Simulated assay, not measured.
Amino acid sequence: MPQPSPLPSARRRRLGVELRRLRERADLTATQAAALVGATQSRVSNIEAGRYGVSADRVRTIARHYDCTDEPLIDALTTLTGERRRGWWEEYRDILSPRMLDLTEVEHHATALRVAHIINIPGLLQTADHARALFGHTVPPLKPHEIEHRVSHRIKRQEILHREQPPPYTAIIHEAALRMRFGDRVTVRGQLHHLNELSELDDVTITVIPFAGGPFHTSGQGIDYFHGQVHQLDTVQLDTDHGAELIDAPAQLERYQRILDRAGQAALTPAKSRDYITRLAKDL
């Protein structure tokens, strides 16, 4: 009998969440579902908690018993199955927090990314010098080697923008983040130039909300929206003082889509944003 995994991956946990939602839509208890699929109630609970893996064929069987006929969703769920594959982020397992690694896993598998940041440059767009200065202001303070671990992890995350077939990436950045001084003038100017260089990539879109653009609804926290293979598997990451918070409740996903739409409407066009960033760099 396989033992439950003490460290289920983010994708395995998400599969469990979605299977639980399918069961609840079918108005079945875990005990009733176990009888239908030929398992124990504890095994159904462990699958839904992500502690047990499940095969693609098993997912299709479970979906059939739950009267789910959404084939695109079922196909997408099967991609979350199988043996746990060690991603590159596993080398940081004993160094960084599980929240950071969960974020990296979700980000790595996203089909598209859309972010809005008010006071910080998005992590995938940061230079190493900017990231190093940023991590130098954490509370409590990090030790030098801890800062370097976080910098190397952040820079490695950025490889998704340079894949042979990268996911489309759209960043909405407020002028406040562009003017925030992390590091000396050389570091700040280098970060602004880096943004414009990345904006030239085919799959990267960077837009700026200037101070003069007026107010729009947001709490001020960074929002990272990761698109899944189907919209039901989308995930939102919020920056908080206690670390990354991942959200996948349908109502919340819809809410943050609307917030991102509002932010996008307040932003300049990509071309005007590039000119705006250039002017800011010259004023330093």
Rank of each mutant, 00 (worst) to 15 (best):
I47G: 06
E48A: 06
E48T: 05
A49K: 15
G50V: 02
G50C: 03
R51H: 10
R51W: 01
Y52G: 06
G53D: 03
G53E: 03
S55M: 02
S55D: 05
A56E: 09
D57A: 12
V59I: 13
R60P: 03
R60Q: 13
T61R: 10
T61S: 11
T61N: 06
T61Y: 14
I62W: 15
A63K: 08
R64T: 10
H65M: 12
H65I: 00
C68F: 05
C68L: 07
T69Q: 11
D70E: 03
D70I: 03
D70N: 12
L73A: 06
I74M: 10
I74W: 12
I74F: 10
I74S: 07
I74N: 08
D75V: 05
D75E: 12
T78V: 03
T79A: 12
L80Q: 04
L80N: 01
T81E: 00
G82A: 09
G82T: 08
G82Y: 11
E83L: 08
R84L: 12
R85G: 06
G87E: 09
W88C: 07
W89T: 00
W89K: 01
E90K: 07
E91D: 07
E91I: 02
R93I: 09
R93D: 13
I95S: 06
L96I: 11
L96Y: 09
L96R: 10
L96Q: 07
P98L: 06
P98S: 04
M100T: 10
M100A: 12
M100R: 08
L101S: 11
L101Q: 11
L103H: 13
L103Y: 15
L103M: 06
T104V: 12
E105I: 03
E105M: 08
E105F: 07
E107R: 07
L113W: 11
R114S: 09
R114M: 01
V115E: 13
A116W: 14
H117Q: 13
I118S: 11
I118F: 14
I118Q: 13
N120Y: 15
N120L: 15
I121N: 06
L124C: 02
A128L: 07
A128T: 03
D129A: 15
D129G: 09
D129K: 07
D129V: 00
H130S: 02
H130R: 02
H130F: 14
L134E: 13
F135N: 02
H137I: 00
H137A: 08
T138P: 00
V139Q: 12
P140N: 10
L142Q: 09
K143W: 03
P144V: 01
H145W: 07
E146D: 07
E146T: 01
E146F: 06
I147E: 04
I147V: 15
E148S: 01
E148C: 02
E148Y: 05
H149P: 00
H149K: 05
R150P: 08
R150D: 07
R150G: 09
S152C: 11
S152R: 15
H153M: 10
R154W: 04
I155D: 06
I155C: 05
I155L: 15
I155V: 13
K156D: 10
K156H: 14
K156M: 12
R157E: 10
R157F: 08
Q158W: 06
E159K: 12
E159V: 02
E159F: 00
L161T: 07
L161G: 05
H162L: 12
H162K: 13
R163Y: 01
E164L: 04
E164I: 03
E164D: 09
Q165L: 11
Q165N: 14
